[in-house]
Design a protein around this nucleic acid. Structure first.
Length: 619
RNA sequence: GGCCCAGUGGCUCAGUUGGUUAGAGCGCCGCCCUGUCACGGCGGAGGUCAAGGGUCCGAGUCCCUUCUGGGUCGCCA
């Protein structure tokens, strides 16, 4: 039977009570975490978002209900703070306890479907179905509180730097490039749709045209693509744009932002009981940022050495190009790849020369998922023998030259991929990460930032038979390369940059085109007719005719940022109400069918698929 | 859309080459216990083994399909 809290006012949160309160009367409200009934004496742990405090009843006349409180019930307690006779050194409030004079059961709880405590291993779908209960667990609660704290730090830093927090609309025009849009039907304009923004890109550029000079927004963005551990259909960007700046300015201000954040985070994290090793890692990163800033690597180097445009620099094992070494050798797989314009590259897995056949097969399987046709290997066994999958196709001299080029020594495992540049990068890059993890080369409490710069402007799409913008169509080309835009579009670099942390793309941005002739040429290269460009981006192109400041910007994936700094494996851990793999919400059961009347108002039909194919289609 | 992993009381798991009434810990219910804090003691309830189909004398176990989640490739300017 629920009771009213009328007449009571909470005086503090549970773990805010300290020894200074001893002798004082307090009113606490929270959830029953644990009830230990010893018969004549009852201990109740009361929990709220601050932590836990113990309530003790022992007197004869005490409220009998103390002994049989249901866990997770919401209660209010009035009582006196006193020193404990038996101290618990593991609790923040371990030296004090509450001797209650009044209990009110504000809302009795049923037995929850899983235990509300840290370290549980309950199936995630169940936890997501009861997300509000999962969020009661201190672990998760602390991550959400950490997120709020980091957002506050970001706002503080950016507003101190003269950034204006400006909201942009979320019902906007659908854009054809990039990810699939979430569409919102218009009731007033039958058959027409708004799109939810994939990012506030064009709007923030227009804010620069407006003279807002420095803008930021904690912006919700939407992309209708498949999910991953670090990808949700709706996510949050820390979005910023600046006028009259160049790439170094953007990199500088964001390096200072990250330096500021890593400096402020540790105190908050200690308060929220994050693991000390993780906090020490952030402190170390902060010292590094203060002393040396953040290093830069070109996209080309990142791909060549790490096989990825988001290199994980927490360990070495760089990729080595041996194309020149094996050119003309007897191994057809290598020479064939080279003849087709591909490359031959290898990884030297130090100390793994005695790896078993099964494990090497597993590595081959990994390489294959990234498009490689196979994996060639040389085992330099610790007993001095050499075992190779392709030795019989090579002369001893060729093999020795190859081993030397790889820096191979006794005890090393050499892995080779031969294919197109992209395939070799993907396969060896993935193997490098896999091996780095498996061989324990990665310190999970280390934070290694890097700026990846000089991205290509364009990327050829076999599927569409044309170039696509690698970043987006408003990215400024490298001024030296621009003259080649017609002769060799693929070679033109962009003034685009990503901030990468531990092999995760945490953010990215670019200098924007502010000259209308360059913008029009860019759209032409991307295959837009002038008419279609006008139709899609007319408002931007027109704006560009009225005095555009040179401008640039950057956006962080806030969820990823919080995931990385909080040591989480998935962004689901740092989002209050995340969606699952098929983009549905298990708690609300969304998406769901709607009333036919709603559809009628929106001039929508939903049975198109069946009626278009009366025989039924399984597609 | 492809590939891989998982699904056994409320939760987490065990369950042998297919072989009687499917076990454990936690939780839950009842009784006992005045310093517990992973409290303890005694007793108890609770399972169409995700669903459907198949093989077999016999299926939690083998096969097929589906469902529900997770990881990943494609995709994500």
């Amino acid at each position: 039977m629920a009771e009213s809290m009328k007449g009571l006012k909470r005086t503090a949160r549970c773990a805010e009570i300290t020894e200074e309160y001893i002798g004082k009367t307090v009113t606490l409200m929270g959830w029953v975490a644990k009830c230990r009934n010893k018969g004549g004496i009852v201990f109740v742990d009361l929990r709220d978002r601050s932590g836990i405090i113990q309530i003790v009843t022992e007197s004869e006349g005490a409220d009998k209900r103390w002994g049989s409180l249901k866990p997770e019930s919401a209660i209010a307690v009035v009582g006196t703070v006193r020193r404990r006779s038996a101290v618990n050194p593991h609790m923040k409030t371990g030296t004090i306890e509450i001797s209650p004079t009044e209990l009110r059961v504000l809302s009795e709880a049923q037995t929850p479907p899983f235990l509300i405590q840290n370290g549980i291993d309950t199936r995630e779908d169940l936890r997501l179905r009861y997300r509000y209960l999962d969020l009661r667990r201190p672990e998760l609660q602390h991550k959400i509180m950490f997120r709020a704290a980091v957002v506050e730090m970001i706002r503080q830093f950016l507003s101190g730097e003269g950034f204006l927090d400006i909201e942009t609309p979320t019902l906007i025009k659908s854009t054809p490039e990039g990810a699939r849009d979430y569409l919102v039907p218009s009731r007033v304009h039958p058959g027409e749709f708004y799109a939810l923004p994939q990012s506030p890109q064009l709007l923030k550029q227009l804010l620069m045209c407006s003279g807002m000079d420095r803008y930021y927004q904690i912006a919700r963005c939407y992309r209708d693509e498949d999910l991953r551990a670090d990808r949700q259909p709706e996510f949050t960007q820390v979005d910023m744009e600046l006028s009259f700046v160049d790439q170094d300015d953007v990199i500088d201000i964001n390096t200072r932002l990250l330096t500021y954040l890593t400096g402020e985070m540790p105190a908050k994290m200690r308060e929220l009981e994050f693991p000390e090793d993780l906090i020490k890692g952030i402190e170390k990163a902060h010292e590094e940022l203060k002393a040396h800033g953040i290093g830069r690597i070109t996209w080309q180097d990142a791909m060549d050495f790490y096989g990825s445009d988001k290199p994980d620099l927490r360990f070495g094992m760089k990729i080595v190009d041996v194309s020149d070494t094996v050119r003309g050798c007897g191994f057809g797989v290598f020479t064939g790849a080279l003849e087709n314009g591909g490359v031959v590259r290898g990884l030297n897995v130090k100390g793994s020369g005695d790896m078993g056949r099964k494990q090497i097969d597993k590595l081959t399987e990994i390489a294959k998922t990234y498009g490689a046709k196979g994996l060639a290997y040389v085992q330099l066994k610790s007993d001095g023998t050499v075992k190779s999958s392709f030795a019989k196709f090579m002369t001893d001299d060729e093999m020795h030259a190859l081993i030397a080029a790889m820096g191979g020594e006794k005890g090393d495992l050499l892995l080779f991929a031969a294919d197109k540049f992209k395939v070799v990068c993907a396969a060896l890059g993935a193997l490098r990460l896999h091996l780095g993890e498996e061989l324990g080369l990665i310190d999970h409490n280390e934070f290694r930032f890097v700026w990846v710069i000089d991205f290509p402007l364009l990327e050829w799409s076999d599927e569409e038979g044309r170039f696509l913008a690698m970043h987006h169509p408003f990215t400024m080309p490298n001024e030296d390369d621009w003259k080649n835009i017609d002769s060799d579009p693929g070679s033109v670099r962009a003034q685009a940059y990503d901030i990468v942390l531990n092999g995760v793309e945490m953010g990215g941005g670019s200098i924007r085109i502010h000259m209308d002739d360059v913008q029009e040429k860019m759209l032409e290269v991307l295959g837009f007719t002038p008419e279609r460009a006008q139709e899609q981006f007319g408002f931007l192109l027109t704006a560009f005719k009225y005095g555009v400041p040179p401008h640039a910007g950057l956006a962080y994936g806030l969820d990823r940022m919080i995931m990385l700094f909080s040591g989480s494996d998935s962004i689901r851990d740092v989002i209050a109400f995340p969606k699952v793999k098929d983009a549905s919400d298990l708690m609300m059961d969304a998406p769901s069918a709607v009333d036919p009347k709603q559809l009628e108002e929106l001039s929508l039909k939903t049975d198109i698929r069946e009626s278009a194919d009366p025989k039924g289609s399984d597609s």
